[in-house]
Structure formats: structure tokens, C-alpha cells
Computed example of a mutant assay.
Amino acid sequence: MSDSDPRATPTPAAPRGDDPAPASIDLNADLGEGCPNDRALLRLVSSASISCGAHAGDEATIRETLHAAREARTVIGAHPGFADREGFGRREREATAGEVEALIVEQTEFLWELAREQGLDLRFLKPHGALYNQAQRDHEVARGVVAAAVRLGLPLLGQPGTRLAEIARERGVAYIPEGFPDRGYRDDGSLAPRGEPGAILDDPAEIAIQAVRLAASGRVRTLCIHGDEPGAVANAEVVRESLERAGIEIRGITG
């Protein structure tokens, strides 16, 4: 389905910062992708979406991250994506709902097996990269993601007010709306595509302001730190500090 499909759900308005801050919010990071910051980030976040090995990472890396998550007592979830290691799972693909459902279930079951070796359980599902972005607007991909969540019995992370959120609600799937302190937003509330000017924020002050604005909007229940960014640890530190200064507790919402 194209962005101009009349069935597409309008993207929500950009978050506002003039609403009262919530008492708490989750802070998550995408980990297990072979990047060097996993252990440091696990000390700063309250949940972690772990790569299932298709878009990045390998079995040894994933096991190491799961072990570190157990030590940190961090809530974990599955982070499946398109099998596109060269493009880090960030290149869009044509896929039917059935194909999307199958790849998510297969990857998540693989991760679940490794997690159980560590005495851990998966608490949520968060697609990665292109699969995540397509699911926000593409009816067919969104149907596949939600069908996988139903089969797996897991809550689903995604952006608020999207096609994915709508279908999850229709299917009775618990939906956890997510915001991104380190990403640029368009005026209509959608994420600026990578490659566009301002799509990736690298100014700590700007990241801190956006983290509090997103949390205070009341539209999201978790904030994401991209673990593959060179400044991921510094970003997580500044987000934690800004939220704590605003009186917002960081707490795993699925723990």
C-alpha cells in the first residue's frame, strides 16, 4: 500500500510540551546488534528490545546481551526485522501479511529459546527498522505484525495514532506507544526519514528537551534510544537526567 492509499490512518500531530508530565515512563534501547554499547546501556534503560539475529547480531552476541540483561534485571522484548544484514534491516521490502507474520514468529521463537536458557522471558514485541516503519502506515504489513503479536501473546511497541495502533486495537493487542528523543519529527508528527537533514539529533540539549516534551505529551509510554548510534550511551545519560529533573520516574512498563 502506498502512502497515498485512502485507507491510511493520518499521522498524529507533533507532541506538545505544555501538558503535565506523567509520573513515570519506560526507557528502552535496541540491543544485541553487535554494537559495543550494550552493557553500558543496560545500566541506563529499563527495557531492551533484543535483535533476533536476522538484520544484525549473531547467536553469540545475542546470548551475551541476554546475559547482561539478566544481570541488570532489565525487561526484554523481541526486535525482529527483515533479513537484510547489508542494509541493517532499514531497506523497505514488499511483503504480504502472512510473510510478515511468519518471519516475526520464527525470529521471536529463536530469541525466546535463547532467553529461556538465561531464565528470562520476553515481555513485548518491537519490529526493527523498515519493518517497524512500514507497519506504521502500510495496512498489509501492519496486519502481519499484529497477527504475529496475537500468536506470540505479546504487547506491541509502535508509534501512536498509526495504522499499526489502529489494527492492534481492533485485534485486542496491548499497544505501547513509543517516542524517539534522538530522532527528528516532521510537523505532522511522523519521523523524518533517515538521510533527511535533521533526521538524527546529536545535540545533547536538543535530545534532552525532546525527551521531556515527548514524555509530557502523554501520548507515549516508552522512549527509545538507538543502541547503534555512536553517541547512544551519552544520549541515554542525558535523557535519564532530563527526565529525572522533570520529576519523571524511569520504570519498565512491562516489568
Score class of each variant (00 low, 15 high):
residue 171 R to P: 00
residue 122 L to T: 05
residue 30 D to W: 02
residue 159 Q to F: 06
residue 210 Q to H: 13
residue 199 A to N: 03
residue 193 P to H: 10
residue 218 G to P: 08
residue 150 V to N: 03
residue 190 S to T: 13
residue 69 A to M: 11
residue 238 V to G: 05
residue 146 V to I: 13
residue 73 R to H: 12
residue 240 R to Y: 11
residue 131 L to G: 08
residue 190 S to L: 00
residue 60 A to F: 02
residue 61 T to Y: 00
residue 139 H to Q: 07
residue 182 D to C: 12
residue 37 N to G: 06
residue 108 T to K: 10
residue 95 A to R: 03
residue 24 S to Q: 15
residue 45 V to H: 00
residue 199 A to D: 07
residue 46 S to V: 07
residue 53 G to T: 07
residue 31 L to F: 02
residue 126 K to A: 12
residue 121 D to G: 12
residue 105 V to F: 08
residue 191 L to K: 08
residue 56 A to E: 01
residue 200 I to K: 11
residue 5 D to T: 00
residue 91 R to Y: 01
residue 240 R to E: 09
residue 209 I to L: 03
residue 133 N to H: 12
residue 88 F to L: 13
residue 189 G to A: 09
residue 121 D to M: 14
residue 150 V to R: 15
residue 143 R to A: 14
residue 5 D to L: 01
residue 122 L to D: 01
residue 126 K to C: 04
residue 211 A to T: 11
residue 204 P to G: 06
residue 24 S to Y: 11
residue 106 E to L: 11
residue 95 A to E: 10
residue 12 P to F: 10
residue 70 R to Q: 00
residue 79 H to F: 09
residue 120 L to H: 13
residue 174 A to Q: 13
residue 99 E to C: 02
residue 72 A to V: 00
residue 147 A to F: 03
residue 194 R to C: 06
residue 251 R to E: 03
residue 65 T to R: 02
residue 79 H to L: 01
residue 88 F to M: 11
residue 170 E to N: 03
residue 250 I to G: 04
residue 99 E to D: 13
residue 217 S to R: 15
residue 154 L to Y: 06
residue 186 R to M: 05
residue 40 A to G: 01
residue 109 E to N: 07
residue 118 Q to S: 04
residue 38 D to T: 05
residue 244 E to M: 12
residue 250 I to F: 04
residue 215 A to F: 13
residue 71 E to L: 06
residue 46 S to I: 04
residue 31 L to E: 06
residue 23 A to N: 09
residue 124 F to K: 06
residue 245 R to G: 01
residue 249 E to M: 10
residue 78 A to Q: 08
residue 31 L to Y: 09
residue 38 D to Y: 05
residue 169 R to E: 15
residue 62 I to T: 06
residue 211 A to Q: 07
residue 11 T to E: 11
residue 114 L to H: 08
residue 231 G to P: 00
residue 113 E to A: 14
residue 81 G to V: 10
residue 201 L to M: 03
residue 68 A to G: 06
residue 127 P to C: 11
residue 156 L to C: 04
residue 224 C to K: 13
residue 26 D to E: 15
residue 78 A to I: 02
residue 177 P to A: 12
residue 94 E to R: 07
residue 115 A to N: 10
residue 6 P to M: 03
residue 176 I to V: 15
residue 194 R to P: 01
residue 218 G to E: 09
residue 213 R to A: 10
residue 193 P to M: 04
residue 145 V to S: 01
residue 27 L to G: 12
residue 24 S to K: 15
residue 163 R to H: 08
residue 40 A to S: 02
residue 225 I to A: 08
residue 202 D to Q: 07
residue 105 V to H: 14
residue 160 P to I: 07
residue 89 G to D: 07
residue 125 L to A: 15
residue 200 I to R: 11
residue 183 R to G: 14
residue 160 P to S: 05
residue 74 T to D: 00
residue 47 S to M: 09
residue 110 F to R: 15
residue 215 A to H: 13
residue 178 E to S: 14
residue 5 D to C: 05
residue 226 H to Q: 09
residue 207 I to C: 00
residue 160 P to F: 04
residue 200 I to L: 15
residue 225 I to M: 10
residue 3 D to L: 12
residue 157 L to A: 03
residue 251 R to Q: 04
residue 231 G to D: 12
residue 201 L to Y: 06
residue 222 T to N: 12
residue 196 E to A: 06
residue 104 I to C: 09
